[in-house]
C-alpha cells in the first residue's frame, strides 16, 4: 500500500463506491482493488496538484 493512503481508507472507498455505482466486487478481489485504487489515487493527487489556467479546455474533441 502506498504510504500516502491508508489501507482502511482504500477498503472503505472500494466498498462504498462499488455499492454506489452498482459494481459488485467479489470478496476475493477486494484487497487487490483497494491496493490498485490507492496507487491510482496517488497518481490522481499528482494530476490535481497542477493548477491549470481556467481557459485550458479538455483535450477531447467533439465535432457535431
Amino acid at each position: 500500500m502506498p504510504p500516502e493512503i491508508s489501507e482502511d481508507d482504500a477498503l472503505t472507498a472500494v466498498d462504498a463506491m462499488s455499492r454506489l455505482i452498482g459494481l459488485p466486487i467479489l470478496p476475493g478481489h477486494r484487497a487487490g482493488v483497494a491496493l490498485n485504487l490507492a496507487r491510482l489515487m496517488v497518481q490522481a493527487r499528482l494530476v490535481q496538484s497542477v493548477v491549470l489556467p481556467e481557459e485550458t479546455e479538455p483535450a477531447s474533441v467533439f465535432t457535431p
Binding site: A13, V14, L23, A44
Partner: peptide
C-alpha cells in the same frame, strides 16, 4: 481486473 476495477472508482473530476 484489479486495475480496471480501481479505474471504475476514480472520481470524475480527476
Amino acid at each position: 481486473r484489479d486495475r480496471l476495477l480501481a479505474g471504475a472508482l476514480l472520481p470524475a473530476s480527476v
